[in-house]
Amino acid sequence: MMSSAQNVAEVERWASALGGAGIALYGIRQGSAAGAMIAASGGILIARGATGYCPMYAATGVSTADTDTRVALRLGRGGHVEQAATINRSAAELYRYWRNFENLPRFMAHLVSVQQVDQRHSHWVAKAPAGRTVEWDAEIINEIPNELIGWRTVDRADVISAGSVRFTPAGPDRGTEVHLRLKYEPPGGRVGSAVAWMLGHDPRQIIQEDLRRFKQLMEAGEVPTTKGQPRGKQSILNYD
């Protein structure tokens, strides 16, 4: 196992494993459905301790093990995507624009709106199948000014999706590397399936296009387009 797959510190891993074992034992002794749930959650902590890897930490950019952002996401179910772009602006400028979540729909194609509720909480509206929309609340759970923003959805305490964006200076006069990571779990009800739908069959491409629009907005101030330009008579064989 590569060390980059670990994002939980040594002491914390032991604590996780021991605490998890205790919780699991307690749950099993209950002998009920609730007890089984408790036992299962204990199991997750044991696994976290054994592997040094926490999926929740990974998606939101938290790492107590080291500062490597490329911690692999490897939840059994659900999916994750990771894309990067280098943008010819300072980390501080990019961070400031992104931190105002209300800007996100300007470059994330499937978002309708994001409303900032307070410093940490926001309300998201996204497009869903059949012209409908789906909404959720999100909270910022990790934040390093000019460097990192990590968030996850808060919906009846179910975590359905999480994401992080990291801004790393790319060197003198070379702009800023932006690494975007998203994790989502389809079984998480309506919101989860909408997220899965909006990421479609090629989530990497969709996230890449979102990042590209972010870059275009930051560097050029607008997104290039030809929609609405004149054209001549078209053949039915044209594919767009």
Partner: peptide, 22 residues
């Protein structure tokens, strides 16, 4: 307007409009 290999024609099309600020 291009209509295919060896086929270009002059035709009437809509006038262009401003699509972006710049």
């Amino acid at each position: 307007v291009w209509h295919g290999t060896n086929d270009v024609r002059v035709e009437r099309v809509p006038d262009p409009t401003i699509l972006n600020g710049r």
